[in-house]
């Protein structure tokens, strides 16, 4: 855990720590929230020209006290060579590769503790989001219009939801997460609150278990 320097309570918990403490998977709303919040921080990191890294495991996703979610520095994992850097020292790891790694980790967090021969039934919109993030969608030619997260807005929200077939950017992911809510404009506050609660509740559980021990 990213802890206070004074040895006090940590300011962040990794997703892995959260899963282990609860010993159960995250729920769907938490999955939407972690996706949204993490893509938000990844967009901000891109704007600051930070090198892109794939998320290797849930240990590299940090949920902060204030509801921010970040990918830990050096999240590429020991088994993965550092990504090549281009001019300006900017990593050549693509945005879609980072999104793919995030989708896989989110799925595993939803699948935590399940046996190999078991599969969790996910709501279709969340399964679709993860399917597209992880790039596991099977091309059947029936849904090939692409998700255009362009500036034209979402005039027909339901139509847009049906047309999802490609996620190319953090913004695409965030738009889909926002479209999941009754009011899209509430996405920043709502998802931050969900992640803040996830941190707070996990800390409460940690404190409780420590006292019991």
């Amino acid at each position: 855990a990213a802890g206070g320097e004074d040895g006090g309570p940590p300011d962040a918990l990794s997703l892995e720590e959260i899963l282990r403490l609860y010993n159960q998977p995250i729920n769907e709303e938490q999955a939407w929230a972690v996706c949204y919040q993490c893509c938000g921080s990844l967009r901000a990191a891109d704007a600051r020209r930070r090198p892109r890294r794939r998320a290797a495991s849930a240990a590299h996703i940090r949920v902060w006290r204030d509801g921010t979610v970040t990918l830990a520095p050096g999240a590429g994992g020991a088994e993965e060579p550092p990504p090549a850097t281009g001019k300006l020292g900017y990593s050549q790891c693509t945005e879609t590769e980072v999104i793919e790694s995030l989708g896989i980790i989110i799925y595993k967090a939803l699948d935590y503790g399940l046996k190999e021969n078991e599969e969790r039934e996910l709501s279709p919109p969340l399964e679709q989001l993860i399917d597209h993030m992880a790039n596991t969608v099977e091309a059947d030619g029936s849904n090939d219009e692409g998700y255009e997260a362009a500036d034209e807005g979402m005039e027909d929200e339901d139509e847009d939801r049906r047309k999802v077939s490609a996620i190319r950017s953090y913004r695409d992911v965030m738009k889909l997460c926002a479209a999941h809510l009754p009011t899209e404009s509430e996405a920043p506050n709502h998802y931050q609150a969900v992640c803040r609660a996830l941190f707070a509740e996990t800390m409460e559980l940690h404190t409780f278990l420590t006292k019991i021990k």
Binding site: E116, E119, E201
Partner: peptide, 24 residues
């Protein structure tokens, strides 16, 4: 608190779990 129940079904070869497993 903060957790919801979820349904579990048998893993399917064409399901998302199998597809994710193939990626990792």
């Amino acid at each position: 608190k903060g957790k919801s129940l979820y349904k579990i079904k048998p893993r399917h070869d064409s399901g998302i779990k199998a597809k994710i497993s193939m990626k990792t």
